[in-house]
């Protein structure tokens, strides 16, 4: 591509006698042409980069409906949403109590259990099963797994402990386990995403 600031050096002194006004008009047309080329290149780059964004079929799967009727108190299930694990946990009364006893102001990421669940459904803790540190899947959802020092989840990669509200309590995780957007379609069916 022609760059404008490389001056048009006439190769031959005898011919370099253009009218003063002409020079400006010429420069203008060169600048316009090169700018247009630049705009064209930028406009072309957009789709070439945008193609890396999630494709239509990936986006289409971005909401799932989960039947939670089979989850007993104290149990949790691991399901997958957007190819990431989701923990759906039916909290027991002592777990809820333990979560509510905590002084929120002292937490790294202050949130109450009520803020992390839906009104009237405080026993349903729905979080992404992705450690907020570097993305490993914490333990604690399946039966018999280590639940960490706070009875919630424990990430074995770098030792992050989450409590029964899925809040970060110890270790390198900077924030609480993410709560995805969800809604209860009925008492037993929850739509995530």
């Amino acid at each position: 591509m022609a760059s404008v600031d490389t001056a048009v050096e006439p190769n031959d002194s005898a011919v370099s006698e253009p009218e003063i006004g002409g020079v400006r008009r010429r420069d203008f047309i060169n600048i316009a042409a090169v700018s247009f080329g630049g705009v064209g290149v930028v406009a072309t780059v957009f789709p070439l980069v945008n193609q890396m964004n999630p494709s239509a079929d990936v986006l289409a799967l971005s909401s799932i409906e989960v039947d939670i009727s089979a989850i007993e108190r104290g149990q949790a299930i691991k399901t997958s949403w957007r190819k990431q694990p989701i923990f759906i946990r039916n909290l027991t009364a002592p777990e809820i109590e333990a979560a509510n006893k905590v002084d929120v102001s002292g937490l790294r990421d202050p949130e109450t259990l009520a803020e992390r669940t839906q009104a009237g459904k405080e026993n349903w803790l729905i979080t992404l099963g992705v450690c907020t540190h570097l993305g490993c899947v914490p333990l604690g959802a399946a039966q018999g797994e280590v639940k960490g020092e706070f009875g919630g989840y424990f990430c074995p990669c770098h030792g992050s402990h989450y409590d029964t509200a899925g809040r970060t309590r110890k270790g390198p995780a900077p924030t609480n386990l993410e709560v995805p957007e969800y809604s209860f379609l009925t008492d037993t069916v929850v739509k995530i995403g």
Partner: peptide, 13 residues
Amino acid sequence: EHIMRDVNSGWMI
């Protein structure tokens, strides 16, 4: 066909 139908601007590319 996935490129043609689902990838953003895939048909163009």
